[in-house]
């Protein structure tokens, strides 16, 4: 008998018992309610906290008006149609979508950080992928796989970015407390830095994994162009972690 037939036979024998969970639907609905309530309250709370922080300082208060104008222009640029966006902008959007560390670095100050966080779940990734499809001449099956691959990673990237942002805020709070109390909790600092290191590593690994998997969908020429494109906008990541395989 073919060894594969034996394996098929064995696989068919493995039939775990299944009993439907009578409470599943209720648990799911409860969790959805909790999440929606938390989202509503946390969005409001974060905005209040951020706004209070910004307006508390005279320097920030003065800069707030300017910031709103700049942020308004920036957001409208991002949300406008792709025809009005330059390839550099689209590449940056792509990069923001697949590299939480870049997203964090791009958030140069607290206000930008809040703007980025608001964008975290709504970056027009699809649009930059469509642009990449044209740019790299991906055929439909290639593009479908490319899109599906990126969709799979989006939740993880957004979660990682949210964790990185919260860690950054934690560090800033630690610094503020240190300056006002003049006491350093070394254990807390150590834990914070360790967690930061761990998250940064995880983020780099995930981005790298996605880039490698994406490039595996392409032919040699597309792969080279894709990596060149990515390198052009992000030499830092390239130096930081990405070692292309078969490139």
């Amino acid at each position: 008998m073919n060894p594969d037939d034996n394996l098929e036979k064995l696989l068919r024998k493995w039939q775990p018992d299944f009993k439907p969970d009578p409470m599943l639907a209720e648990h799911v609905e409860d969790q959805i309610d909790v999440l929606e309530n938390r989202r509503k309250s946390s969005l409001l709370a974060s905005f209040r906290e951020w706004f209070r922080g910004v307006t508390a300082s005279p320097v920030y208060a003065g800069g707030l008006a300017l910031l709103l104008v700049v942020a308004g222009i920036g957001l409208s640029e991002i949300w406008n149609g792709s025809k009005e966006r330059s390839p550099d902008q689209l590449t940056s959007i792509y990069r923001l979508s697949v590299d939480p560390l870049y997203r964090l670095d791009a958030s140069a100050n607290e206000a930008r950080l809040a703007a980025e966080a608001a964008l975290a779940t709504g970056l027009p990734l699809d649009e930059s992928l469509v642009w990449l499809q044209e740019e790299l001449e991906l055929d439909q099956p290639q593009y479908d796989a490319f899109l599906s691959l990126h969709t799979q990673y989006q939740d993880s990237f957004n979660e990682l970015f949210a964790e990185l942002v919260s860690l950054k805020s934690g560090y800033q709070k630690f610094e503020t407390d240190r300056k006002s109390d003049d006491v350093i909790d070394f254990m807390a600092l150590y834990e914070l830095l360790q967690k930061q290191k761990e998250l940064r590593k995880l983020s780099e690994d995930l981005t790298r994994e996605l880039l490698i998997k994406s490039s595996e969908l392409m032919n040699a020429d597309q792969k080279t162009r894709f990596l060149e494109l990515y390198k052009g906008v992000s030499p830092s990541l390239e130096a930081r972690s990405y070692t292309p395989i078969n490139a």
């Binding site: 060894p3 594969d4 394996l7 099956p141 290639q142 479908d144 796989a145 599906s148 691959l149 799979q152 998997k213 595996e216 969908l217």
Partner: peptide
């Protein structure tokens, strides 16, 4: 292939490798 984010050919390869490893 849609779940795994790879090509159909990639799925075939993965199945081949998985069977081989399991055996």
């Amino acid at each position: 292939s849609e779940v795994a984010g790879c090509s159909v050919r990639g799925v075939e390869t993965r199945l081949y490798r998985a069977r081989k490893l399991i055996r």
